[in-house]
Design a protein around this nucleic acid. Structure first.
Lengths: 188, 188
DNA sequence: TGCAAAAGCGGAGACTGTCTCCGTATAGTC
DNA sequence: GACTATACGGAGACAGTCTCCGCTTTTGCA
């Protein structure tokens, strides 16, 4: 890649990150990003064929943060519920960091052709680590994909309705309890 | 309202209902509805100022169906879990009837200015009936709004990812168990 | 250092949506 | 039959995403 192209690409991602954070994914137009990065629309689209692809580049550093959140949760001293809830809370918070993104990312979970496919793998793997680590404490049939979708769903709703954290927390608590429910309880 | 206006309005709603069912909310354009109903765009927009408002009219008969689903669930002989799950399943199914609608409706839950405000009241009231009827079996702090949002979230994800019913069911099961979890379990 | 080819740039505009404006037509009334 | 309030239709304003292609810059090579 030519040096000027590299520079432009980096500046585009940087500008996009700032705009997405400030205004949310949907409220930022590609033209706006191009203007902000002082490039033409053509340049923007040569680097990122779609808006989703641009967003994927913006999320670059997230993999580390996701794994850090898993580590943090599993390192907690508390009960299985506390550790699970710590992760669910962090996960939901990361998903709602850019308004409009939670639904998009969660929708891509099962789609290998999505530009987010790699990120989704990271998320799924993180949830898989949680499922394996908490193993016996969880109901026996829990899959990482279900976990991802449940929290993604709550995050999307919270995002859409701009819910405050203290409205989200009890919902994550309900999901946590549902995940922890044993078979005996489940069939009562 | 003039007779021709009445006729046009009815035809628009009918055509829109058919299109939404066939292609999903997002995939149907207002132009398409206008063409299908053989009216101009101006006529369409005089009757329904926005696409959401049109959708609201399409959902007209849902209130009855929602209440019927509550009745059906509460009339079941089985355990609290079975009755709860029956309602959750019906509710999720109704939300995903038109692709793209679950997220929209759920997002409007807390917004009194939404064109769906009346429908949302119906949904909330339905969930309130469930909460009250199952009362003691549920954890003590459950609110109808939480229930609506949790199921709305799952429905939106299922809708987006086009999940089959047997992928949705276990997730609703988890939510049901979370809602039924007692305080003792919740603090373990 | 100079030059040709490769790589990249920019922005006009195609295309697709939602929604508005306003001249024209028609139902309902006397 | 004439008059007026009501309604109609569709061109087009506006806002997005994304494409096309003539022009510019970088780079490698002599």
């Amino acid at each position: 890649m030519r040096a000027d192209a590299r520079r432009n690409r980096d500046r585009i991602v940087e500008v996009a990150r700032a705009l997405f954070r400030a205004k949310g994914f949907d409220a930022v137009s590609m033209d706006e990003v191009a203007k902000g990065a002082e490039v033409g629309a053509g340049t923007l689209y040569r680097h990122f064929a779609t808006k989703d692809e641009l967003y994927d580049a913006v999320l670059e550093a997230w993999a580390e943060r996701v794994n850090a959140a898993v580590d943090r949760a599993l390192a907690l001293e508390g009960s299985a519920r506390e550790r699970l809830l710590s992760w669910l809370t962090d996960y939901a918070a990361m998903l709602t960091e850019h308004k409009g993104a939670a639904a998009r990312i969660t929708a891509a979970l099962g789609d290998p052709d999505s530009p987010f496919a790699t990120k989704c793998q990271t998320y799924l793997a993180a949830n898989q680590r949680i499922v394996e680590a908490l193993g016996a404490a969880l109901r026996p049939d829990v899959e990482a994909m279900q976990l991802s979708r449940l929290v993604g769903g709550v995050a999307a709703v919270a995002d859409n309705s701009e819910l405050p954290a203290d409205a989200v927390k009890p919902m994550l608590g309900i999901i946590a309890d549902g995940l922890l429910a044993t078979e005996v309880e489940a069939t009562r």
